[in-house]
Each structure stands twice: as structure tokens, then as C-alpha cells.
Amino acid sequence: MMLQFNVLAASILSQYTDFEEIDWNKMWEATKETLFMTVGSVIIVFILGLAIGLILYETSNQHSLAANITYRVVSILVNVFRSIPFIILIVLLIPVTKQLLDTMVGPKAALPALIVSSAPFYARLVETGFREIDKGVVEAVESMGANKWQVIFKVLIPESLPSIAAGITTTTISLVGFTAMAAVIGAGGLGNMAYLDGFQRNKPAVTLAATVIILIIVFLIQGIGDRIVRRVDKR
């Protein structure tokens, strides 16, 4: 009985450690594709998220009708896109991607779906960050004669920097996860490796290697993010 178990375990283990099976050049290409999708989308998500977060913050709890309507509309859009499962969203957006980028495969094709799914999520984090700023500080700066833009760039963003940085870290990590799912539209990357090469061609070692690389990427992002948050937080 014990012997049988050992043999079984050894055979499973050998499948995972059959590193001969791995084409490291392809793996490196896939890593670069994952990094491209992550970095490319994060840059746009960061800018878009800040802008949408700012709109949400500035239009909430206002007396004017225009502000109220803007808040409602943006808020509903954010909630809708945040709620659509990524795997569905990416398929849903295929016609848009085709129009926009003239292609529906490759890492670039994954960008619209990655951005549309993450920007609303990040916008909410940014909005929350702005809300946590003491209203008195904003009032103090207004009392100095600051205009809206000065309040945004001298108070809102600097004073919520730890939230902004922590938020983009979380968002980036979830984006890494999404890039793996983008394999379904042939976006390439490590998810693609793990699924097509690893699973469909029955090479568990490839899947394991892809997993390890993704984990390293995630831990690096988390590590860098934490450092930045600690750096900017002077509270």
C-alpha cells in the first residue's frame, strides 16, 4: 500500500519535473508578452482610474443637478464594468477590439478588455483614497485661495498617495491574473503557455514553470508596491 503510494507520487512528481520538455525561449517570449500586457494596461488604467476617481469624488454630494447626473452615470458604468467577469468581458469586447486595433489576437488585442475591466476597479480605490482625506485640509487650502486644479495637484493627489500606490499595486496584481485568462483569445503570455503547451500537450512541467514565473512577477510587484507605499506615507 505504502509502496504503491510512493510510486504514484514519484510518477506525478516526475511529470512536474520533466524540465527537458520546456522550451525556455518560448517561455521567455511568453513572459515578455505577459509583462507587455500588464505594463501596457497598468499605465492606461492608472491614468484613466485617477481621472474617473477624480470625477466620482468631485461630483459626489454636490448640490448641482449636472454633478448629480454625472455621478450617477459614471457610478453605474463603473459598477457594471467592474461586475462583468473578465472571461466574458474579453469575448464581449472582441468586435470593439477588432475595430480599434484591427486585430483580435496577440498581446495587444488583450489590452482593451484588461483596461475596461480594471480601470473602474481602480477608480473606486482612488475615489475612496480621496474621500479619506480630512475635509479640513481641503478647506484650509481653499482658504488660501487655491483653485480646483491646485487643490487636486497639491492636496488630493499628494495626500492620498499611499492609497493611490497601494491601489495600483492591487490592481496590477489582479491584471497579471487577467492576462493569464486572455489566453482564450490567443493573446499569448504565460497563461497561454500554461494552458496550450502545458495542459493541452500534457506537459505539466511547463504549467509549473509558467506558474512559478507568474508568482515571481506577482511577488515582485507586491514588494515594490509596499516599498513605495512605505516611502510616501509620512502620517
Binding site: G136, E139, A140, M144, G145, A146, N147, E159
Partner: peptide
Amino acid sequence: LRSKRQKIGMIFQHFNLLWSR
């Protein structure tokens, strides 16, 4: 109004300083 405010200082109970500065 904003340029007038520059000539009126204000201090607060909870100081309202920017912790980031």
C-alpha cells in the same frame, strides 16, 4: 474671491496641515 482669500489667513482647531509635506 480667491485672490482676496490670499490676504486672509485662517487657522483651525485641528491645524489641518498637509501630512505629506
